[in-house]
Simulated assay, not measured.
Amino acid sequence: MVDSDKIKNSLIDEFYNEEQGKVDKNAEYSDEYRDFKSVLNSAGEKMDVLNDDIFDFDIDTLSIIEQGEFIRENRKVKKEFIFFVLLSTIILSLYAIAIIILGSKILIISQMIIASIAPWIIIPVLVIKRKRSEA
């Protein structure tokens, strides 16, 4: 019987197209030779599958992130708009009720108060909001 290590080494050399050792012709017909050669061939087929470009994905992560930020920004804008509409409706309703109950003098007095106090309230609020959005 031919040495099994010599058979395996010669088959491995043949598989990798390296210098082939000389093996008896009788060894080529042995069961051990055929079994090991089939193992090498199946391993080669599995490696060929891995060499194919099956993992060629074209994923644009930047556009996905931009879409997510766009959706988040749209939700935030919608919430702020709804809050603004509700708050302004409530304020104007209360203002109208106050004019009806207290008379038209309250309209003139409130306009003067709003015109003089509003800049002192609006400007600091906008500055604080801008600093929060930058951070």
Rank of each mutant, 00 (worst) to 15 (best):
S38E: 15
S4N: 13
R34C: 02
Y16Q: 06
P124I: 08
V49L: 15
D52V: 04
A27W: 03
S116C: 11
F55L: 15
R132F: 09
V23W: 00
S116V: 11
Y95F: 15
E45H: 04
N41F: 08
P124G: 07
V23Q: 00
L50F: 15
L94E: 08
K131F: 07
F70S: 13
E73M: 10
L94Q: 08
E66R: 13
R72K: 14
V125T: 12
N26V: 07
V2D: 09
G44D: 07
F36E: 00
I106V: 15
N41G: 00
Q111T: 12
I99N: 08
Q20N: 05
M1G: 13
S116E: 09
F84R: 11
N41E: 12
I99S: 06
I128Q: 09
F36K: 00
K46G: 06
D52L: 14
A115F: 12
I106A: 09
S63P: 00
L102A: 10
D53C: 05
K76C: 06
D53K: 13
N51C: 05
E18V: 01
L126W: 02
E66C: 02
N26D: 09
L11T: 00
D3S: 10
K131I: 08
M112P: 00
D13L: 02
K78A: 15
I64K: 03
S10M: 03
F81D: 08
N51G: 03
I90Q: 04
I99Q: 10
I108S: 11
R34I: 12
S63C: 05
F84C: 07
A27R: 02
N9L: 08
I100Q: 13
I114Y: 14
D52C: 05
I128R: 14
I82E: 13
A96F: 10
R72D: 08
I82T: 12
K105A: 11
I114L: 14
D31W: 03
K37D: 04
I91D: 07
L94F: 14
K129W: 06
S133E: 15
T89S: 15
K79A: 14
S38V: 02
I71F: 12
L86Y: 07
L92G: 01
G21N: 14
D53A: 10
Q67L: 13
G68T: 11
F15C: 07
E66M: 13
D31F: 03
Q111H: 06
V39I: 15
I100T: 10
L92E: 12
S30Y: 04
Y29T: 05
F57R: 04
S133M: 12
A115W: 09
S4C: 02
N51W: 01
L86P: 00
K8C: 03
I121K: 07
I59S: 02
S93I: 08
Y95A: 04
I128A: 13
K22E: 13
I100F: 09
Y95C: 02
S63L: 09
